[in-house]
């Protein structure tokens, strides 16, 4: 297995040589799962209608990501190549089910608001992609850093969407009124269409910032 890792070239090889703080930082900004990799769009668009939903979804996904990365990484020498995807899905599904129970135990209201999207974390391609592309090839320590970086990056992006949508669509942030009483809510922002608009605007801002950095 160690030889295989050495044989890998390109992106993954470069990751292995970089210092370990980079494993954490890259997910936050340079390889942000939402704004740069555009992964896991289903929860990003569907559960980002309020800041609290976005934050809860982001943290739930981060938890699953962290736990599955740890398990996949520690079992990486045990899982045969042919059944690796099936094993990853099984591991991810387990942690999603656990998260589902835990959220129900924390708050019935929160569970109601997130609805079916908790179960859908299973098919969030972000988690599978980290398991396949990173955790299965790296040590537990690195995988933890990678999961934390990607998880926080995902949570941060969801929160960016959720905050904008809640402020404009509901006139509040975390349920606390943000504007004077007679503020006119832009109802479209909490509807699915608003998710697409907000995501597009954030992507625009990110790409413009990146372009500016590249040219200067």
């Amino acid at each position: 297995m160690a030889n295989q890792i050495k044989n890998n070239t390109g992106f993954f090889a470069s990751l292995q040589e970089s210092p370990s703080t980079d494993e954490f930082v890259k997910g936050l900004w340079r390889d942000n799962p939402v704004f740069v990799q555009v992964l896991g769009m289903c929860p990003v668009l569907a559960v980002s209608n309020t800041a609290i939903n976005a934050l809860a979804m982001g943290l739930a996904t981060s938890f699953v990501l962290l736990m599955s990365n740890v398990l996949v990484s520690s079992l990486r020498n045990f899982i045969p190549k042919q059944v690796r995807i099936a094993s990853y899905i099984l591991i991810i599904a387990t942690f999603v089910t656990m998260t589902d129970y835990i959220i129900q135990a924390i708050s019935v209201d929160l569970h109601k608001a997130l609805g079916a999207f908790i179960s859908l974390i299973v098919v969030n391609c972000l988690i599978l992609s980290r398991a396949e592309a990173f955790a299965s090839k790296n040590t537990i320590g690195k995988s933890v850093l990678d999961a934390l970086g990607m998880g926080f990056g995902f949570t941060f992006a969801l929160f960016c969407l959720g905050a904008v949508r809640e402020i404009l669509g509901n006139g509040s942030i975390f349920g606390v009124p943000f504007f004077p009483d007679n503020f006119q809510e832009w109802i479209v922002m909490i509807l699915p269409a608003g998710g697409f608009f907000t995501l597009a605007i954030w992507l625009l801002i990110f790409n413009a910032a990146k372009q500016r950095k590249a040219t200067t």
């Binding site: 079992l75 591991i91 942690f95 019935v108």
Partner: peptide, 28 residues
Amino acid sequence: AMVGIGILCALMIVLTFQGTAPVIKKNK
């Protein structure tokens, strides 16, 4: 490998379920 992971996963789910079931019931 599959059976091993399966058993491990089943164990974790059952433990979580047992742990949270009374709280969930109380919440509901």
